[in-house]
Design a protein around this nucleic acid. Structure first.
Lengths: 339, 339
DNA sequence: AACAGCGTGGCAAGCGATTGCCACGAGTTG
DNA sequence: CAACTCGTGGCAATCGCTTGCCACGCTGTT
């Protein structure tokens, strides 16, 4: 009666059980299962058959302890609720599964210290890390990269392979698009200060605007959420700009809502361009002109770069950099400048 | 020169290192760190200090191997890209972190066999599972629940604690809302056949419609994605119904887009009610009247029910059922029936 | 004075796999 | 026919931590 009545207490089978049934040593079972060519075909088949019958599942814990490999890759994102990362997560999840790894998803809450702390804790329990839109400083990143296999997304550094989404490139397109509509001024509704992409985007806009004789102003920083779109919208209204480029779609969508509340018509009164082409950008009102890119693919590429790093022989020469193409997706939130 | 030049090879500290430095046995270190009251305060402080200096991080692998507990809870969702689950995931993530557990997120791809398979594999490596919108049959669920601590979300069963979102209750509200607008007929754009909620929702609608003398028709099944909203929309147009309740918002939003394409005006020609109040339901065009509930809270409650199950003493009497309230959120996609 | 009880800490046996090393036998070679 | 190689499988140490059991010394009791 001392037994837990809830879960049946049948012990899970171990390689030992298989070994006994097959009349071999546990080492043979271990090899048969994880190093098949090291064992005679007949022996292996027998072991595999018994393992299947027993519904044997190897203990990743034990395996990890003795082999040092855990089969787990951590994916760190600043904010799990930002749809932009959904696509990345989906990409990594897909590719990791295909590579036989388990994905551990962690939300770093846009906080450098959480990120750093998590990274330290994860060193033990994961084989590698994919860091999306890291908020770390260069030094922190260098240090981290020297301690554990790492791939970053949208955060270049000399010390770790990186997948870059070429948003700055598309910013130029966006600006041309606005210019062709007769816009002479643009304001950039900026994202978090600690965001590396944020700086890159602004630089690209500033430069391209200068080249075209447009005036460019930066506002912010704003939290990259729909909620803070209200503040951004109000901020923009106090300028005389006729067009906006937002740090990301979330912010842009929030601005759209705010403009609607305040009776500002988009695109008649104001044109607005988002960034990322997230879920929702196509069906908001008006549908958002935005910068689109194969984000899911970025996740998959990041995984394959990490795999190459973990297994340099099979993975070939690890690429240090991959750049995902972007393009401007013109929808209904941009139009001719008001006169 | 045989060393891996990438990651610095300094071995991670173990309790052994701490024990040596502190001049005690490893068992004492172990206790000091994970069973503090079992050890003298002074000894403990000393050990904690050394541990901190060394940046000691316990190996979850080793800990799991010897203790049987892994500190990992798996959260299984049918489709990671469905925003509905984002909120659940956010809730579980938050609460799990607060309880000192790690969340392992798994996408079961809406497939029963993937779900079952994953569940088996996970038995070894997790302390418990939260199953959102499980596609399992009753028998499979019973069997699973007997083998591992489990909490389901939106899938009632006698054998495992459940968090239910009272969508059926709100269906009645939705129907009343439509009736008050003069609608005499409603069609339900159904979700996956294997979805338990789908059946519940339809039953609720059917019953409530009969009570009000409205005609109710079921269409589908449709995949719960915006993409298949087109098919659903076309299906609805071939009926003479004036109002629609969709299985979920994703489907409803997809229908909205299709109607727009086909020149059907919402809500003038057709009223439509969604379900879940996901991200986007408030800013689509027109904003969607939908059934709203504290989804994130559902995730948190699920975790606390699981915690109670894992530690019956501290957790108190495990609740077997929690029902999250729902309400109809009226926006602009519903209006008077056309005459 | 003898003893029970309690607070602490050490010993050592696992947990379930992996893996370096060795042994054995069969086939190959000179 | 001796010497080797090669394929195959076993032995046993090991990974880092937990935990049951025991021992020691101190306090309080009878």
């Amino acid at each position: 009666m001392t037994e837990d009545s809830r879960s049946s207490e049948e012990r899970m089978p171990t390689i030992r059980d298989i070994a006994d049934l097959a009349g071999v040593a546990t080492s043979t079972v271990s090899r048969a299962l994880s190093n098949p060519q090291r064992v005679n075909a007949r022996t292996r088949e027998k072991i595999e058959r018994i393992a299947a019958e027993l519904h044997y599942v190897p203990s990743s814990q034990a395996r990890g302890l003795s082999s040092g490999r855990t089969g787990v890759i951590a994916v760190l994102v600043p904010d799990i609720t930002n749809p932009f990362y959904f696509d990345i997560i989906r990409g990594t999840q897909y590719q990791l599964k295909a590579s036989g790894y388990t994905q551990l998803l962690v939300d770093t809450e846009e906080a450098t210290d959480v990120e750093l702390d998590t990274l330290r804790k994860l060193r033990r329990s994961t084989d590698g890390v994919i860091l999306a839109a890291s908020r770390l400083t260069d030094d922190q990143l260098t240090d981290t990269a020297s301690r554990q296999p790492l791939v970053t997304i949208n955060r270049a550094t000399a010390d770790a392979p990186t997948v870059l989404i070429d948003t700055p490139g598309a910013m130029v397109q966006a600006l041309e698009h606005l210019a062709s509509f007769g816009h002479k001024s643009v304001v950039y509704a900026g994202g978090p200060t600690s965001s590396w992409s944020n700086h890159r985007r602004w630089k690209a806009i500033e430069e391209a605007a200068a080249k075209r004789g447009m005036s460019a102003t930066r506002l912010g920083p704003y939290a990259p959420t729909a909620f803070s779109g209200a503040a951004a919208a109000d901020g923009v209204l106090s300028t005389r700009a006729t067009s906006i480029i937002a740090f990301n779609d979330l912010l842009a969508i929030g601005m759209l809502q705010r403009f609607r509340e305040r009776g500002v018509r988009v695109p008649e009164d104001l044109s607005i361009v988002g960034c990322d082409d997230i879920f929702g950008a196509d069906f908001c009102n008006p549908p958002l002109t935005t910068i689109s890119s194969p984000i899911e693919q970025a996740g998959r590429v990041a995984v394959s770069m990490l795999m190459a790093q973990l297994d340099p022989i099979r993975g070939g020469t690890p690429r240090k950099l991959a750049v995902m193409p972007t393009h401007l997706k013109v929808r209904a939130s941009t139009g001719p400048a008001r006169v």
